[in-house]
């Protein structure tokens, strides 16, 4: 019963896996992950433009987990750490893919779903214009971003956010997000 995390991770391991992290998304772990992907991108002599884009989008994805994930459900059979999340960066032919996964309370899912559906419905111009509006007009939230993270990812990648919701138990779903950088 419950969501099969191992199977999901296996599905996301296609291509050349640059980084796989499963566990507590703490500030220190983020620093380690960023060091690791930066070394990879430098080693591969990746174009400056691509290197920066991958790094920047990865920062937003992993910090999005940091700000929004919680302790996982006891039924998930994973470590009960304060901020449980999964992040995988892989290179597949001509694109990079960042996959993130985390357990979400069913009560909270409509907010996340509506937010992503709204961002995905926007044209490139609308993304830019709404980004500027939020940046210029809204107050800083405690988490700092004011809801700019998802918009920033779509703006930088030029691609839609691909997400899936998997049932887990009566209280939780597993939220899976794929971001592609061409």
């Amino acid at each position: 019963m419950g969501f099969d995390l191992d199977k999901w991770i296996a599905q996301k391991m296609q291509g050349e896996v640059i980084l796989k992290y499963v566990g507590d998304v703490s500030s220190d772990k983020i620093t380690d992950a960023l060091d690791s992907i930066e070394s990879y991108l430098n080693l591969k002599n990746e174009k400056n433009k691509t290197r920066k884009k991958v790094y920047n989008v990865f920062v937003e994805c992993i910090q999005n987990l940091f700000h929004h994930v919680d302790i996982p459900p006891v039924t998930a059979k994973v470590d009960l750490v304060p901020k449980f999340g999964v992040i995988i960066l892989a290179r597949d032919n001509s694109f990079y893919r960042i996959s993130t996964g985390n357990f979400v309370l069913i009560d909270k899912i409509s907010i996340i779903k509506d937010r992503i559906d709204q961002v995905n419905s926007l044209s490139d111009e609308e993304v830019r214009s709404i980004y500027r509006d939020i940046l210029g007009n809204e107050e800083i939230t405690l988490k700092g971003g004011g809801g700019l993270g998802m918009l920033d990812i779509v703006r930088k990648t030029g691609n839609k956010l691909e997400y899936m919701l998997y049932p887990h138990d009566n209280e939780y779903l597993f939220f899976s997000l794929d971001v592609y950088i061409s």
Binding site: K52, N56, V59, E60, L135, I140, G144, G145, L148
Partner: peptide
């Protein structure tokens, strides 16, 4: 700046 996150973007605007 080489990189900045969206969390910093508001602070830079401030």
């Amino acid at each position: 700046l080489e990189y900045f996150n969206t969390s910093s973007s508001k602070c830079i605007l401030d």
